[in-house]
Computed example of a mutant assay.
Amino acid sequence: MSESTGDWYYDVSTGEVSRGKVPHALNRMGPYPDEATARRAIEIAEERNRQADAEDEDD
């Protein structure tokens, strides 16, 4: 997706949310479909990690 599609990113080093790709990609999480979802990036990652951990325990 490109910047014109409205992709949003979360910068883990600053906690800022931005629209479109910006420098320092190593600190960036996304893309997310909207600003509100990008602001939840850490929460989303934690939820996914819990789900993956639960699946690992089942194996």
Rank of each mutant, 00 (worst) to 15 (best):
M1E: 05
S2N: 10
S2C: 06
E3A: 12
S4Q: 12
S4R: 13
S4D: 15
S4G: 09
T5V: 05
G6L: 03
D7S: 12
W8C: 01
W8K: 04
Y9C: 05
Y9W: 15
Y10F: 15
Y10K: 02
Y10T: 00
Y10D: 00
D11T: 07
V12G: 03
S13Q: 08
S13Y: 00
G15L: 04
G15W: 03
E16A: 14
E16S: 05
E16T: 11
E16P: 00
V17M: 06
V17G: 02
V17C: 07
V17L: 03
S18W: 06
S18I: 02
K21R: 14
V22G: 03
V22H: 09
V22L: 08
P23A: 14
H24F: 10
A25M: 08
N27T: 11
M29S: 03
M29T: 00
G30P: 03
P31M: 04
P31L: 13
Y32K: 01
Y32A: 01
Y32D: 01
Y32I: 04
P33C: 08
P33D: 08
D34A: 01
D34I: 06
D34C: 04
E35W: 06
E35V: 02
A36R: 11
T37V: 09
A38V: 04
A38L: 07
R39H: 04
A41N: 06
A41S: 13
A41M: 11
A41P: 11
I42P: 03
I44K: 11
A45E: 14
A45S: 06
E46S: 10
E47I: 09
R48S: 11
R50D: 08
Q51F: 04
Q51P: 00
Q51C: 02
A52I: 13
D53M: 14
D53S: 12
D53A: 15
A54R: 13
A54E: 13
A54C: 05
E55N: 13
E55P: 03
D56W: 15
E57Y: 08
D58A: 08
D59K: 10
D59L: 12
D59H: 07
